[in-house]
Simulated assay, not measured.
Amino acid sequence: MSEQTLQRVDMVRVRDLRRTYGSGPAAVHALRGVSFDVPRGELVALKGRSGSGKTTLLNLIGGLDTPDEGEISVDDTEVVGLGESGLLRLRRDRIGFVFQSFGLIPILSAAENVGVPMRLRKVAAAERDERVALLLGLVGLADHAEQRPGELSGGQQQRVAIARALANRPALLIADEPTGQLDAETGLAVMELLRAVVRSEGVTALVATHDANLLGLADRVLELSDGHITEDRSQAA
């Protein structure tokens, strides 16, 4: 393996990313030339007020939206220009998503919710069950496998959502305000869980949050304001 290959350890590479919604006087310039890299295995927190561009940036990196200009690479795959089938594979196989709203299926148990992504990939039942049990144990819900979302607290539901996001062993975990519906203590516990998951599963994570109390758990903090990165700060573990 060449020295150049050994040095290439970025999970995410973003170059001159621009995204505008609307046109004319009503145009909203969500991103205005954003560039940064995220090394593999790093937990990066995106900080900024509502409307600063955090969600737009995550949606572009996750292939949920298309930039007006710029380049995005995730796990050595160029995202911009991928066809819909390529984007579907990227999101299914390489990226896990965690949202503020949990997004669990109400009629399914916690275990069944975690298993959904593997069913879509047609993973064998025995392998799927083993992975579900491992992940529920990882997020501290081994004893709640058969409960449905309505029988779980908000923090427990978000833990199920995190386990589901990890089901297909993603290289990148994208979390958009994952603690937004939780109280401060539960939110801190969920953020600590995300940090532990990054370490134990070897994934890279991008987490958008407006909660200053959670930023100290990140390896690095990127602050966005008016579509620009205004601060890029690394932190001691």
Rank of each mutant, 00 (worst) to 15 (best):
L82K: 07
A126G: 07
R49C: 01
V207E: 11
L64W: 03
N213C: 00
G227V: 13
V98N: 04
P117T: 11
L64E: 12
D129P: 13
A205Q: 10
A124L: 02
M1H: 08
P39A: 12
Q181V: 11
A145L: 05
Q158T: 04
E151N: 15
S225L: 00
H228L: 15
Y21H: 15
Q158M: 08
T230I: 13
E71Y: 15
R164M: 14
E127P: 10
L108F: 15
E201S: 13
R8W: 01
N59E: 11
L217M: 08
A161D: 10
L104Y: 13
G33Q: 06
D219F: 02
L134V: 10
A126M: 02
G70M: 04
A125G: 09
A124V: 02
M11E: 09
L141D: 05
A145W: 12
A208Q: 10
E185D: 09
G48L: 04
A126C: 02
L88E: 01
T230E: 15
A218S: 10
R195W: 06
A161M: 13
G155S: 01
V34D: 04
P149T: 09
G216M: 01
L104H: 14
L64D: 14
D226R: 12
L172F: 03
E146T: 14
E177Q: 12
A167S: 14
R169S: 12
D76F: 01
L215C: 11
A184K: 12
M118V: 07
D176Q: 02
R8S: 12
L172W: 03
G180Q: 11
A45W: 09
G22R: 10
M11I: 09
V9H: 01
E130S: 06
G83Q: 12
L217Y: 01
A30E: 07
S73G: 01
A236I: 05
L64K: 08
D16P: 01
G150Y: 01
Q235G: 07
V116F: 01
V98K: 03
F97E: 10
E185C: 02
Q147W: 14
N59C: 04
S109R: 13
D143K: 15
V98H: 05
R119C: 08
Q235I: 14
V38H: 08
V9F: 00
K122N: 12
R128P: 15
F36W: 10
A30Q: 06
G63P: 06
G180P: 12
R40I: 03
E84N: 13
R131F: 14
V132P: 07
F102W: 11
A212C: 00
A237W: 13
L141N: 06
L120C: 09
L193H: 02
P25S: 11
R121H: 06
L108C: 10
R220F: 05
D211H: 11
L222H: 09
Q4K: 02
E146V: 11
G96D: 07
L206M: 08
D93N: 11
V34H: 04
Q181N: 15
L222W: 10
T204M: 05
Q7T: 05
T66P: 00
R49Y: 06
V190M: 02
A208H: 09
P178Q: 07
E151V: 08
D76L: 00
S85V: 15
A45L: 11
L134C: 03
K122Q: 11
Q156V: 07
E192Q: 15
R8L: 04
A163C: 15
I162S: 10
D68C: 05
R89N: 08
E130L: 08
